[in-house]
Nucleic acid binder design. Structure first.
Length: 1156
RNA sequence: GCCCGGGUGGCGGAAUUGGUAGACGCAGCAGACUCAAAAUCUGCCGUUCGCAAGGAUGUGCUGGUUCGAUUCCAGUCCCGGGCACCA
């Protein structure tokens, strides 16, 4: 009786099916008390190509583990399904006209067959398909829940939109404002808003929301793509160019979960590289938002100042001085024209203008930040609180803070300088100078409110009132906004340039600022002189596609706006540039450039000849930037002498004190686009009425995907559904959303549906979800690291917050199987021109390179003779000799364009020309075979030169590459199973190496594993005698082999080291073979051990041993240490670290005895 | 450029906690069985010196720690993967 794997496997697969051997029960249906274990494979997209040997790797690993856990007494959920919505089916439909539903169904059938062939223990009764209306009903349902939710930042929880409405009704949006530019409204105002306005506001909070934004538009695919579907500016699928386009799209507010997605990684068992990829994608960085004021360059003047000052004088009883515009300031005092707005020249003691608005800190020569600080006086405190309560002003912790307060009003375009004397301790001559200054200001039209502390206190209410009114008239919105947002920054909106930096410590090294070309400030600040240059640059930027922009990362481009910002610490004027290298989408779309510390800034400065300030002394070599954090700061005002990394916190503290900056965390991750202009996906359960999106109710679900017979785009970039005039009109009025959901929608929650696949009332029953809980083991490829896994984790968190499930991380442990590469075989196409018809002339021009790399032309042919140009024509047999004499050519020929040939027609790297021929759809008549190669379709293919004189053998060139149809290196698991059996295939895939590792497929090695199974079989069955198992008592040696194996297999299986487990089985079988062991008590245990790996043969042997029932339910063998105890041990004797001898000593020996 | 992995025979890979490097398999060589082949079995199989016994050497490279390093540390080179004007 031979090991007839074909019969055995067919028999048991049928048996398993007939007895529902893999049916898994939920606890409530049959009172299961076993502990649960959930093993999940990433479900496949059923592509037309079917499975190749690379696909099942992970499935086999999870199957082994599931079966192992089952033997260990767990109730194991191990389901499988299909991610059956997606682009390829639709692309195929566009090309062939076959409906995606039809091709998808066909492909799924094929997958089923292939998977069953390998003998997986899936509970097919739980199969889910994302394109099944009964499934996507719940995908749509979850979408509606996300639409009906918002993210409450206070308790970090997804909540129903109703709770937000309640907040709006009771207190407005003061505490929940999301975006600094958002309008602030009170509860009364909220009540007064009309429906459309309310919906518009709520949309800014919904987790699933509609927004008008820049999207990745792929013209070739006719759709929008998510960020992770775009790679280097081209689409992941098909490699088509992707451009930015503004469209109205659905999004998921995944950014709200950024921090939790980050923290959640600590809780789960993913590989370090996988976590790293996700962290990278989320891209959290900590730094500061800093506001650099602009130099007030716009002309000022007119009637206003005089009018206001007169009013103020009348009302407050104070004396006001008057000033004029900046140009006049400069005219009035030409010799101290400073780069700042009227910084006074102290040395010359000329009355200055706009006294110390910015430069105070540096001019006062403070050595460090501490010295600069002093506690505010009582008056200052009172004033500050009063101002603060009204939403203006900020803490007077610094002397010059008062001056900044003044600057505040200037920047608000209020023609008013309020100066509080309390913070100013100038000597007498200084005061006189100030009076002179005031006079000058008056002359040129500035308005100065000058109070002493006492006056301020006495007239505070009046002063404030006046300030407020003045502001209301001129820039009321700014003041209001700032007050509502509670922003500490008095500088608001367009008043300054906001930048985000992770290195605020380098602030004294800022030599220029760069805005993204799209930055909205650009058009406001560009000076008339620079307008042309800027416009030119903007045109240039617009002309470039995303792809070009990425391809030319290294090139440095930019333009100067003519405007300047002011460094808040030292008052230096900083030119503002625009450049592509600053991205509009990240941070604030503006940077402070520190050329001595950042290479890109350095390159930019060099390119445009911007002087570089060195703040790190010797650490900067003048030739490249040094991004260190460890250098000691110089030229850095109050930071001098500090180590950079310590200065970061210090600067942020100062910025916050000054109210011109704050600590800020930024994320690289963006909200996820959720619309696709496609047909083959989930329709949105959304109807538009009057431009407002309304959700359908639960009982209107599912919104079934309507049947179409053409798949071309709808109008204006819409999807094919937009062509269905009837369908668009919803039954209860309104028009339907015509986009469909992206591929990741269905796969974000499928693991939940497996738990309770037939539930018609809920996506999953809460009790069932509580029983199965997290996926204990998730196996799949790395390619889903950032896409599927992040979305799935986010959905889980949202569903958890909303109470649908009791856990907020879906996958407890993730194992990434490596890719199995294929061996592709190529033959080489030489550069060969064919002249005339093959049958008629039989001669060719043949191009090759000689020793000097010169191109030579040789005429070759089948018959001796000369052509019409007098070239000699050779017999084909001679061609070989010619080639041999041109070794250089043969070397070079390897680089000539290769033609992939089907690996099935290649063995031992030589091509079987005849099967290659037969493979051709229409065998080519014009074929000419010579000893050196053959002509085919007007190309010449040589065999690979071989010194062993393998004349006439078509050697191929082989390479390890990704398995793909185009490379003709697909090995179908069905073929392997047919030749060697499923058990051999399973074990061989595992034996190849660690699951996580990528490795090439080599069919040759499979023999070894097959031999092992046959050897195993022969322990039980003799070809002639039949079953030879005896009931004899096992010897100590046999028991030792068994228990050693039990321990190792258990160990290896637990830690997914399946390759070493297979070799352990081999060792055990070899050893038992040597011992001639055919004893039931040993072999029976071994059968159970092997069951997870080779289930078919084990079932057969289990029943041959006379057991009733299936080995699937046998108890896993228990390890008994007593059989492993050794009485003696070989001690290696090591001298100077080298093993010199071995001594066999009894284990009873004491340490002293051993040492002796 | 940055961040993760990794580098061990002809090949895939073992060595789980710093303790006999190369388990197991493939390929190869030699032999047994056979008319022959297949199948099966036995032996050899890192490099090197040696008839042999035995010795030397050996885990990308250079150092270090240690009685002892594939394993730990520092530096360096190479390969694979991910991210990439992210401030």
């Amino acid at each position: 009786m031979e090991y007839n794997f074909r019969e055995i496997e067919k028999k048991w697969q049928k048996q398993w099916k007939d007895t529902n051997a893999y049916k898994v029960s939920n606890p409530d249906s049959e009172g299961v008390i076993k502990p649960k274990f959930y093993v999940l494979d990433m479900f496949p997209y059923p592509s037309g190509a079917g499975l190749h040997v690379g696909h099942p790797l992970g499935y086999i690993a999870s199957d082994i583990y599931s079966r192992y856990k089952r033997l260990k007494g767990f109730n194991v959920l191990h389901p499988m399904g299909f991610d059956s919505f997606g682009l390829p089916a639709e692309q195929y439909a566009l090309e062939t006209g076959q409906h995606p539903a039809v091709t998808t169904e066909k492909n799924i059938q094929r997958y089923h067959e292939q998977l069953d062939n390998i003998g997986f223990c899936y509970d097919w009764s739980r199969e889910v398909r994302t394109s099944d209306p009964q499934y996507y009903k719940w995908t749509q349902y979850i979408f509606l829940q996300l639409f009906d939710s918002w993210y409450n930042r206070k308790n970090n929880c997804t909540e129903r939109i109703a709770t937000l409405i309640e907040i709006f009704q009771t207190e407005g949006n003061q505490s929940e404002s999301r975006n600094p530019k958002a309008e602030i409204f009170s509860s009364e105002e909220w009540m007064r808003f009309d429906e459309a306005k309310k919906q518009e506001i709520l949309m800014e909070y919904r987790i699933a929301f509609l927004a008008f934004g820049e999207v990745n538009w792929c013209e070739a695919l006719g759709t929008v793509l998510a960020n992770d579907e775009v790679i280097n500016g081209v689409s992941e699928r098909g490699g088509h160019p992707v451009v930015k386009k503004k469209m109205r799209q659905w999004y998921l507010r995944i950014t709200e979960y950024a921090d939790r997605l980050l923290q959640g990684l600590e809780q789960v068992d993913f590989s370090e590289s996988m976590k790293e990829m996700q962290r990278n994608w989320i891209g959290k960085s900590e730094g500061a938002m800093i506001e650099f004021p602009l130099t007030p360059a716009s002309p000022r003047g007119g009637e206003e100042p005089a009018k206001i000052s007169a009013e103020i004088e009348a009302e407050t009883g104070m004396v006001l001085v008057h000033g004029s515009d900046v140009e006049n300031i400069e005219k009035a005092s030409p010799d101290q024209k400073s780069s700042d707005l009227g910084v006074r020249d102290r040395e010359k003691n000329i009355p200055g203008f706009g006294y110390g608005l910015y430069k105070v800190a540096s001019e006062m020569n403070f050595k460090n930040a501490k010295e600069m600080r002093r506690e505010p006086t009582e008056a200052e405190n009172v004033l500050w609180h009063a101002l603060r309560n009204r939403g203006v002003g900020y803490k007077f912790r610094r002397q010059h803070a008062i001056e900044n307060f003044i600057a505040d009003f200037i920047c608000l375009d209020v023609w008013l300088i309020v100066e509080v004397d309390g913070g100013y301790h100038a000597p007498v001559e200084q005061k006189e100078a100030d009076e002179g200054r005031d006079a000058s200001l008056q002359q040129i039209g500035f308005t100065t409110l000058r109070f002493t502390n006492d006056e301020v206190l006495q007239n505070l209410e009046k002063v404030l009132l006046k300030i407020r009114e003045t502001c209301d008239e001129i820039k009321v919105a700014s003041v209001e906004k700032r007050s509502a947002a509670g922003s500490p920054s008095p500088l608001q909106g367009e008043a300054g340039v906001r930048v985000y930096t992770t290195r605020p410590d380098t602030i004294f090294g800022v030599d220029f600022m760069v805005l993204a070309p799209e930055h909205e400030l650009v058009k406001h600040i560009t000076t008339p002189e620079q307008k042309e240059a800027i416009d030119q640059y903007l045109t240039y930027v617009k002309s470039r596609s995303e792809r070009e922009r990425m391809a030319e990362v290294k090139s440095i481009t930019g333009a100067f706006t003519g405007a300047y910002a002011v460094n808040p610490f030292d008052g230096r004027e900083i030119p503002i540039w625009i450049s592509e290298y600053v991205l509009a989408g990240y941070g604030t779309g503006a940077i402070m450039a520190v050329p001595c510390g950042d290479q890109r800034d350095y390159n930019f400065a060099k390119h445009f000849n911007i002087p570089i300030t060195n703040i790190i002394g010797d650490a900067y070599n003048g030739e490249e930037a040094n991004p260190t954090k460890d250098a000691i700061l110089q030229n850095s005002g109050f930071l001098n002498g500090m180590v950079m990394k310590d200065a970061i916190g210090e600067v942020i503290d100062e910025l916050e004190d000054l109210g011109i900056g704050k600590r800020q965390v930024n994320y690289r991750m963006r909200d996820a686009g959720f619309s696709r202009q496609r047909y083959w996906g989930e329709p949105f359960p959304i109807v538009y009425k009057g431009g407002v999106a309304y959700p359908l109710t639960e009982n209107e679900l599912p919104v079934e995907l309507p049947y179409v017979d053409t798949y071309s785009h709808g109008p204006e970039g819409e999807g094919p559904l937009a062509n269905l005039a009837d369908w668009i009109i919803a039954p209860h009025g309104g028009t339907r959303e015509t986009n469909t959901m992206p591929g990741y929608a269905g796969s974000s929650w499928y693991f939940l549906r497996y738990m309770d696949p037939y539930n018609e009332d809920q996506l999953v029953d809460r009790k069932v979800a509580d029983y199965w809980g997290q996926v204990d083991l998730y196996i799949g490829g790395t390619e889903h690291a950032v896409g599927h896994l992040l979305y799935s984790r986010m959905w889980t968190k949202a569903l958890f917050d909303l109470g649908y499930i009791g856990f907020d991380e879906p996958y407890k442990k993730l194992v990434n199987q490596g890719m199995i590469q294929g061996v592709s075989e190529k033959i080489l196409r030489l550069d060969m021109n064919m002249r005339g018809e093959v049958e008629n002339t039989n001669w060719y021009e043949f191009h090759y390179l000689d020793e000097q790399d010169n191109l030579q032309i040789q005429t070759l042919g089948r018959d001796n003779g000369y052509d019409d140009k007098g070239f000699k024509i050779y017999y084909s047999a001679e061609i070989f000799e010619i080639l041999k004499s041109h070794k250089e050519f043969l070397k070079v020929s390897r680089n000539f364009s290769p033609l992939y040939v089907n690996v099935a027609n290649v063995s031992d790297h030589s091509l079987n020309v005849f099967s290659f021929w037969k493979d051709e759809p229409e065998p080519n008549r014009h074929v000419f075979v010579t000893k050196v190669g053959f002509y085919y379709n007007n190309d010449f293919f040589s065999f690979h030169y071989d010194n062993e004189n393998r004349n006439g053998v078509f050697k191929t060139v082989h390479e390890f590459e990704k398995i793909s149809k185009s490379k003709k290196n697909v090995v179908n698991p069905d073929d392997i199973v047919e030749r060697f059996g499923a058990d051999t295939f399973r074990m061989y895939e595992m034996f190849l190496g660690p699951v996580e590792q990528s490795k090439p497929w080599d069919t040759k090695g499979i023999e070894g594993v097959h031999r092992f199974l046959r050897k195993f079989w022969r322990l039980f069955v003799d070809e002639v005698k039949g079953v030879i198992v005896t009931n004899e008592e096992p010897t100590a040696a046999e028991l030792k082999v068994l228990h050693k194996t039990i321990r190792k297999i258990e160990d290896d299986t637990e830690r997914f080291s399946f390759n070493t487990a297979v070799s352990t089985f081999m060792i055990a079988v070899n050893e038992l073979g040597d011992l001639k062991c055919h004893k039931r008590s040993v072999l029976e245990q071994l059968v159970i051990l092997l069951t997870p790996y080779a289930p078919h043969i084990c079932e057969e042997l289990w029943s041959l041993l006379g057991n009733e029932g299936s080995v699937l339910n046998a108890p896993f063998p228990t390890l008994e240490e007593k059989y492993l105890v050794e009485s003696s041990k070989e001690y290696p004797i090591s001298i100077n670290g080298k093993v010199r001898a071995n001594l066999n000593l009894s284990l009873d020996a004491t340490q002293q005895q051993v040492e002796e």
